[in-house]
Design a protein around this nucleic acid. Structure first.
Lengths: 66, 66
DNA sequence: TCTTTGTGTAAAATATATTTTACATTATGT
DNA sequence: ACATAATGTAAAATATATTTTACACAAAGA
């Protein structure tokens, strides 16, 4: 599961901690998803996309293995 | 996490088993999500929306508690 | 240089999603 | 009435996501 979280964070100029705060998870969770250590839940993916003012599909992309 | 899976299935006229097949999960998983016993992963939510030719946000909706 | 902020990481614990197997119920068609 | 397809459900096992606590490192500013 690819994502553009790092880029979208840069657009908003917010830290991983700030994003974590806004979607109510820990900073480590944001870090893990951003580095693609695992894929988020649908709830979290929707919250993250919402912070960025984007659709889920604009932030997250399915890969072959998914 | 609300969803319109039942309606979208009706539009396509496919069973829970058929949808499960198309997104590569078990029929019970589709049933549980459709009845909102739990929320799907982001990967599964995206696959389901894709089958319906819709955006994730058109099929799934965040609720207060989420 | 010292302090602060942002990021990467790791192990253990907990929460949640998904599978497997199995059975019951409801609807549909013949 | 009978057969079949579709749905609801449940318990146990497994997989995966998330939290918690903690530490290391790099960059930036005072």
């Amino acid at each position: 599961m690819k994502n553009t979280i790092r880029i979208e964070r840069a657009v908003l100029n917010i830290s991983q901690a700030e994003l974590a705060d806004r979607v109510q998870v820990t900073r480590q969770t944001i870090n893990a998803i951003e580095l693609e250590k695992y894929a988020p839940s649908a709830v979290l993916a929707m919250k993250i996309a919402r912070v960025f003012g984007k659709k889920v599909e604009e932030v997250f992309e399915l890969e072959e293995g998914d």
